[in-house]
């Protein structure tokens, strides 16, 4: 049903074909200088990172319960049923709460524009809808990046790990992190050596906000009752005081 991606760092040769295909898909410039920038930005929506002999990729993780979607005040970011987290630039007011909230540091902002947009990978939602793989996975010459049905991606990850038990760190990154993502990482070494954040909680982040946010209706109604009550008591007391004063005099 839902789409996912498997990135296998042990197969990645750092050729950056994924970067180039992504830039082409988005109509973004791509040259040696941009290739050398190993970080996500408004003009680079996926990047290969070098860690000595090894490589890793960065792109939007398309969380199952995305923080960015939950914080967007105008619903410019949406999680689609098919998996991709998509962005509607026409709704966006530019508050950049999504940049703050993202646990993976994914979204970028067009800081130098006077009509800026948020930029991030959209999982090639259009291609995936048409039954095609993402541009980056299609471009990958070594099967280090593949995309398809979520179940198939997980099965493939487990198959690879079972086939060569010694070559993989025995975990799949993205399975548990912040409630699970749509991008899974395999690696020969612990994930923090690929610069991935392994300290993230397993529970989805939006729940932390909702725990407070969902109390608003009860706080508001209890507040209204309480304040009206206090108002009535304090003013009634004054009335009584006045009346008693009146009787005495």
């Amino acid at each position: 049903m839902s789409k996912a991606m498997l990135y296998d760092s042990t197969l990645c040769i750092g050729c950056r074909a994924c970067e180039s295909a992504c830039s082409e898909k988005w109509g973004l410039p791509y040259d040696d200088r941009i290739a050398a920038e190993e970080r996500l930005s408004a003009h680079k929506l996926t990047t290969v990172k070098t860690h000595g002999e090894r490589f890793s990729r960065r792109l939007c993780m398309h969380c199952a319960e995305p923080g960015c979607v939950s914080v967007c005040p105008v619903g410019a970011l949406q999680k689609t049923a098919a998996g991709p987290v998509v962005y509607d630039a026409d709704k966006c007011i530019g508050c950049r709460y999504c940049l703050l909230a993202c646990p993976f540091g994914t979204p970028s902002y067009e800081w130098n524009s006077t009509q800026p947009r948020v930029r991030k990978c959209d999982f090639c939602a259009d291609r995936q809808r048409a039954g095609k793989p993402t541009a980056c996975s299609e471009a990958c010459p070594t099967q280090a990046t593949i995309s398809g049905e979520r179940d198939a991606m997980l099965a493939e990850a487990k198959r690879r790990m079972a086939e060569k038990p010694g070559e993989y760190y025995p975990r799949i990154y993205g399975l548990e992190e912040v409630g699970g993502t749509s991008v899974f990482f395999l690696s020969a070494v612990p994930f923090e050596q690929l610069g991935l954040n392994t300290q993230l909680p397993d529970e989805p982040l939006p729940g932390l906000t909702w725990a407070a946010q969902s109390k608003i209706p009860s706080v508001a109604s209890a507040g209204a009752v309480l304040l009206s009550g206090v108002y009535w008591i304090t003013h009634r007391r004054e009335e009584v005081r006045k009346q008693e004063g009146g009787e005495k005099s």
Partner: peptide, 13 residues
């Protein structure tokens, strides 16, 4: 936009 494009899950909203 916040007037007509609602997201009650958002604190910012």
């Amino acid at each position: 936009h916040a007037l007509i494009m609602w997201n009650p899950h958002s604190v910012m909203f």
